[in-house]
Amino acid sequence: MTNEDKKIIPAASVNPEEMDKNGLGRRGFFRWITVGWIAFSAATGGFFTLIIRFLFPNVLFEPPQTFKAGFPNDYASNTVDTRYKKKFNVWMVRDEGSIFALSTVCTHLGCTPNWLGTENKFKCPCHGSGFRMTGINFEGPAPRPLERFKISIATDGKILVDKTKSFKWEKGEWEQSESFLKV
């Protein structure tokens, strides 16, 4: 190869076997490109992780999740009490043998159903789901019954509702003793 030739042939079009001796060969090239891609993916992945993690703060400022709901005797048999609906999104329901705290969040898409005393059901205004007094769904699109919250008697004899723990019927959790109060 004369000096002239070397000048006109661009480096990239030189036969790689030939290159091996004095520069970046095929194997070296693949090694570098692998490292390059790994570094690139790690950087991008890290960046996206940062972005997504940023959406979830460590501290939340949300209203208290437990409240006291009077004495068990405040509730008459077979009634739905809507007193705590506004502030805590809970209905206190007493049926024959038990009291339980029913969530007011429709299991369909989260609207607040209304208690229709005359028809003895909860009816959701958004897409028409209906729930019996027990919280069991029987009409409309709601896929499952309303949830119940943890309920217990505090030391002062009042009912304590803890909304951080909920009980789902379809998982058989309504059997658990914390999900209702025997009366």
Partner: peptide, 18 residues
């Protein structure tokens, strides 16, 4: 409830300040 897409959209578990 504290780690899903809805949370990312709402910045909380309920529709509120965030």
């Amino acid at each position: 409830a504290g780690s899903d897409v809805r949370f990312a959209l709402l910045g909380g578990r309920f529709v509120g300040e965030a």
